[in-house]
Design a protein around this nucleic acid. Structure first.
Lengths: 226, 226
DNA sequence: TTCAATTGTCACAGTTTTGTAAAAAATGTG
DNA sequence: CACATTTTTTACAAAACTGTGACAATTGAA
């Protein structure tokens, strides 16, 4: 269950948010004071924080900054009365994930929250060992086994598998892979990806020519399934 | 072109809104009666509704609730005479997006409308799963099911469905589809669209020859309904 | 009712995308 | 530097998808 902390002194806004979020099955907490909200966040470690900027006690910018400094690593969405571009930049610089100007549509803010949490839940699980079928991948040791046979895999192959596993069941485009595994700077052809797929299939598939785990989605990408 | 429905019985207010909104290039419709306004909303599917609370025929709260229940998914802004906190909460609870207390500044309301519509256009297409009838479309997984039967769909078919769903209830011209799904550079015949419609109907309609979800509007285009 | 325009339907051909292997380039290692 | 390993490109074959044209059916207007 996702806990969301709302730090907001206008009860109309916080109540409205609470109602909408409860409807979506999130647990909510409300703080109407900056200082208290900050301490609550540290104690509760909510999955997401909605943070007003103008607050009694301690302003939203400071809260955001201090939370990040103290290691809080979950998404923060800042709510602001002014549409000042400068504020937005400051907010994002201080480590906010999103910045929403009032008046906002509550239903759409909820949509954003869902989107952010959905994306996050994908990356969240940091695992060392993953098993599927008769394959075991140990990412920490960089050791892989299929059946009783050792598999030799390069670092890049491990990274691709890790990305696939983190997005298990979803179609992943070649560009997603290039961005996430290769990074934004160096950028080989999309065909490079296909070749890695080929190699991975040879290693992890029992029958590489009719793959069960790395499935092609024509003109879209590939999907990993257990 | 964005259509906005104004459900408001005070002609001074509705006229003023109409003039300001027309100036911003919105199409406007006015209903001065609750019941009629509700029916108009269902029929026209406006991009946004401005909804007074005190209305003859049917009050704003009920209209809001019933619209949401019947699947209307666009923003609703409630207009109210009282600044009652409780009312505001009720409004949001019933699925309104925003709540504005009279007397309000028309320029501010217009600003809010623009903000909501702008944001909406950004996140409108941010859903992964969509269900209607006995069909489930999962866009992230590229999986589709009708009844207990898997459906195989190409990427383009998913894209068309996504566009249809984003414009649910509105007639979409072949050129809209060609522009939005195919893009501005490559440009096949409008007949190509018909062919995709044919294929989609075969896949998602229970009885493809008398379709219930993708409806033809002669010399206009197609409309998707849940 | 008739006629012209629009839409439904189908199969085929052309195009694009993907599978595959092998060679070339880059990288790291002692 | 020479070698082994990894990474990327290239080329061709195979597969999947897309767009088109033809003709039938339907619709809307005169």
């Amino acid at each position: 269950m996702n806990k969301i902390l709302i730090i907001e002194d206008d009860p109309a806004v916080s109540k409205g948010l609470e109602i909408s979020l409860r409807k979506e099955n999130y647990e909510t907490l409300i703080s109407s004071d900056g200082e208290k909200g900050f301490l609550t966040a540290l104690k509760i470690k909510p999955e997401l924080i909605l943070l007003d900027i103008m607050l009694p006690g301690k302003n939203g910018f400071d809260i955001c900054k201090d939370l990040r400094l103290s290691g809080y690593n979950f998404p923060i969405i800042m709510l602001s009365d002014k549409a000042e571009e400068a504020d937005k930049v400051i907010g994002l610089e201080l480590g906010a994930d999103d910045y929403v100007t009032k008046p906002f549509s509550i239903r759409e803010l909820v949509a954003r929250i869902k989107a952010i949490l959905r994306r996050r839940s994908v990356i969240k699980n940091d695992f060392d060992i993953f098993k599927f079928d008769d394959v075991t991948l140990d990412f920490a040791k960089m050791e892989a086994v299929k059946g009783d046979q050792k598999i030799e895999m390069s670092l890049k192959e491990y990274e691709i598998m890790k990305y696939f596993i983190g997005h298990e069941g979803n179609v992943v485009s070649r560009n997603d892979l290039l961005n996430e595994v290769w990074g934004y700077d160096n950028f080989p052809t999309t065909r490079t990806v296909d070749n890695y797929i080929l190699m991975l299939r040879k290693k992890i598939e029992t029958n590489p020519s009719s793959p069960k785990h790395i499935i092609t989605y024509h003109s879209a990408g590939y999907k990993f399934v257990k």
